[in-house]
């Protein structure tokens, strides 16, 4: 099994899914990951997803679109997605590429991402209570 077939883990903790992306993904792998996450959301009834990209040295338009698509798809499944730990060089490059990912929630690190999800979940509870 080489790095291209390595499965990206999707870890469930309480109401959340944590997805640490630690390989330079090729396009098929990115698409696979997207559907895997959506299936896991449906299966586990997770309320939020944290996607950790802190070791990714590059996010091109394909992976960028995969991530923002992921967020919109999860949103209509009533689940929030937070992209965590983007590197500064990656952020600058994405902006220059023209991919500003509007509407996608981001957090500096896992802890802040988790706080953000909790906050969202609680505001939702207050709204619906």
């Amino acid at each position: 099994m080489n790095q291209y077939e390595k499965r990206i883990p999707i870890i469930k903790i309480h109401d959340y899914l944590i997805v640490p992306i630690q390989v330079d993904m090729h396009d098929k792998q990115a698409i696979q990951l997207q559907s895997q996450i959506l299936e896991e959301i449906a299966r586990t009834r997770a309320k939020g997803v944290l996607i950790d990209i802190s070791v990714l040295e590059m996010v091109d338009s394909f992976i960028g679109r995969m991530l923002s698509g992921m967020a919109s798809m999860a949103a209509i499944m009533d689940t929030s997605v937070v992209i965590v730990g983007m590197q500064p060089a990656v952020a600058i490059t994405l902006v220059e590429l023209g991919l500003e990912m509007p509407g996608v929630d981001t957090a500096l690190n896992m802890e802040k991402g988790m706080e953000m999800l909790e906050r969202k979940l609680n505001t939702r509870k207050i709204d619906t209570y």
């Binding site: 590059m58 996010v59 091109d60 590197q87 060089a89 600058i92 490059t93 590429l97």
Partner: peptide
């Protein structure tokens, strides 16, 4: 940053 730019 330049490394990331050209790679992307």
């Amino acid at each position: 940053v330049d490394q990331t730019r050209i790679t992307t």
